[in-house]
């Protein structure tokens, strides 16, 4: 159940070391190829550096963001791949009224298009803005990174991880966390000391290492609690409230009716008594 944070240390995760990312965008293209996604009609320049397309979309499950700026007179040219974080306790899965999203034991959070009713609650819920909609269609569905579940299930690594020459390591979350910590310890000058995804949204299956402070790169600050727990703390009262309100109102009305009846009977008795003692 989604409100109980499961142990994800054995599930497969991505370690994306942006200090090693060259912004080659092989991942971006590999993803399109594997998922047979359309190339978007874009214009230069839709973002910093050579960033394109302007945002992720139904056709773009992953995108390399460019940051091109100066700090203390030095150039910073940084790149990071955005994609579904495959949260340990995914918000998208928790809010979906028909349970179209599911966190798999292997790690990827997968989407069952056959169930989806297209309400877009998942899009509102996802703290990372990942699920995208087929806006061009009359009867649209949601689209997002699949974590290459079909590949992972057959023992392959995700297409993007396979294509990446340097930055992406794919493995179990537990090992990758250790690896990330090791890298930070080995080269403290190179790494910012926070592993993005370790705590975010209660922990995700995508972990990032960076050189620059996270906010400089535009990483979204996200609560460290699992998001579904926020909803669940209210939702869990539902049966209770239903029973309380229903029961309470039944009691109240029963009580009021009794009062009324008693009153009416009283009045009637009085009335008849009066007629008995009738003075008229």
């Amino acid at each position: 159940m989604s409100s109980v944070t499961t142990d994800c240390s054995k599930s497969k995760s991505f370690l994306i070391d942006t200090t090693k990312c060259t912004g080659c965008r092989g991942c971006q293209v590999a993803c399109k190829q594997w998922n047979q996604l359309k190339g978007e009609k874009t214009e230069f320049f839709s973002g910093e550096g050579y960033q394109n397309p302007p945002s992720m979309s139904e056709y773009t499950f992953t995108r390399v963001k460019f940051k091109d700026y100066q700090k203390h007179g030095q150039n910073e040219f940084a790149f990071y791949k955005e994609m579904c974080m495959h949260c340990n306790d995914p918000a998208c899965a928790s809010v979906c009224p028909v349970g179209a999203f599911k966190k798999t034991a292997e790690g990827p959070v997968v989407y069952n298009a056959d169930r989806c009713i297209g309400c877009r609650f998942c899009m509102v819920a996802c703290p990372f803005g990942i699920p995208k909609y087929q806006w061009s269609k009359a009867f649209p569905l949601v689209k997002k990174c699949t974590g290459c579940y079909s590949r992972v299930k057959s023992g392959l690594e995700p297409a993007c991880a396979t294509a990446c020459p340097t930055a992406i390591t794919y493995g179990t979350r537990g090992e990758l966390l250790k690896e990330a910590e090791k890298r930070i310890a080995n080269r403290p000058d190179r790494y910012y000391k926070t592993i993005y995804g370790k705590e975010e949204a209660g922990g995700t299956s995508v972990l990032y290492l960076t050189h620059q402070p996270l906010d400089e790169l535009g990483f979204k600050p996200v609560t460290s609690r699992s998001l579904p727990s926020y909803t669940w703390q209210a939702l869990r009262f539902v049966p209770g409230i239903f029973l309380t309100v229903g029961g309470g109102l039944s009691l109240v009305s029963w009580f009021n009716h009794r009062k009324e009846r008693v009153k009416r009977e009283e009045e009637q008795r009085k009335a008849s008594a009066e007629t008995h003692n009738g003075t008229e």
């Binding site: 874009t42 230069f44 394109n52």
Partner: peptide, 10 residues
């Protein structure tokens, strides 16, 4: 190739 044109179109 549309996938690459998308990245650097101009």
């Amino acid at each position: 190739l549309p996938w690459l044109v998308e990245l650097v179109p101009d």
